[in-house]
C-alpha cells in the first residue's frame, strides 16, 4: 500500500463542513491537508504552497472546477498535479473528457465511502 504520510493535499469545495470531514480523514491517514472554498482561494493557496494532490469539487461559486482545471493546465508546475474530482454532479462530469486535465479519479459524493478519497489519493501516487 502506498504511503501518503506527509503528502500535501488541497481540498477545493464550497461545503466547509465536508472539507472539515475530509480533512479529518486525510489527516488520520497522514496527509497534510489544506482547504479552499472556491477557485480563486484555491489559486491563492497553490501559489503559497504547491500541493501534491488536489481534491476538487466541480460546482464552485464564482468559477467552476473546470475553470480551475484549465488554469492549472496552463502552468508547467501545476499542470502535473493529479486531480481527484469530487462532485454531486458526476453525471455531468465526464471522466474521459476530464482525463486530459490530470484527473485521475471521479468520485460521486452521493455514493462515496469513508476510505474512497484516501484510496484515490493512493492511486494517484502509483
Amino acid at each position: 500500500m502506498i504511503d501518503v504520510t506527509g503528502l500535501r493535499v488541497l481540498i477545493v469545495d464550497d461545503d466547509k463542513w465536508l472539507v472539515d470531514e475530509l480533512r479529518r480523514r486525510l489527516t488520520a491517514a497522514g496527509c497534510l491537508v489544506d482547504g479552499a472554498g472556491d477557485g480563486i482561494e484555491a489559486i491563492d493557496k497553490i501559489d503559497q504552497a504547491l500541493p501534491e494532490v488536489i481534491v476538487l469539487d466541480i460546482m464552485l461559486p464564482g468559477a467552476n472546477g473546470i475553470s480551475l482545471l484549465h488554469e492549472l493546465q496552463s502552468y508547467s508546475d501545476t499542470g502535473m498535479i493529479p486531480v481527484i474530482i469530487l462532485s454531486s454532479s458526476v453525471e455531468v462530469a465526464d471522466s474521459k473528457r476530464l482525463s486530459p486535465y490530470g484527473v485521475t479519479d471521479v468520485i460521486d459524493k452521493a455514493t462515496m465511502m469513508p476510505d474512497d478519497v484516501v484510496s484515490a489519493i493512493r492511486r494517484s501516487q502509483a
Binding site: 477557485g39 466541480i58 460546482m59 464552485l60 461559486p61 464564482g62 468559477a63 467552476n64 473546470i66 475553470s67 480551475l68 484549465h70 488554469e71 496552463s74 455531468v92 462530469a93 473528457r97
Partner: peptide, 16 residues
C-alpha cells in the same frame, strides 16, 4: 477564467 473555459466546456457555473 471564464474566457478560458467557455469554448471547452458547457458545464454550468453558479453565478454568485
Amino acid at each position: 477564467m471564464f474566457e478560458r473555459s467557455s469554448d471547452q466546456t458547457n458545464l454550468p457555473t453558479r453565478p454568485l
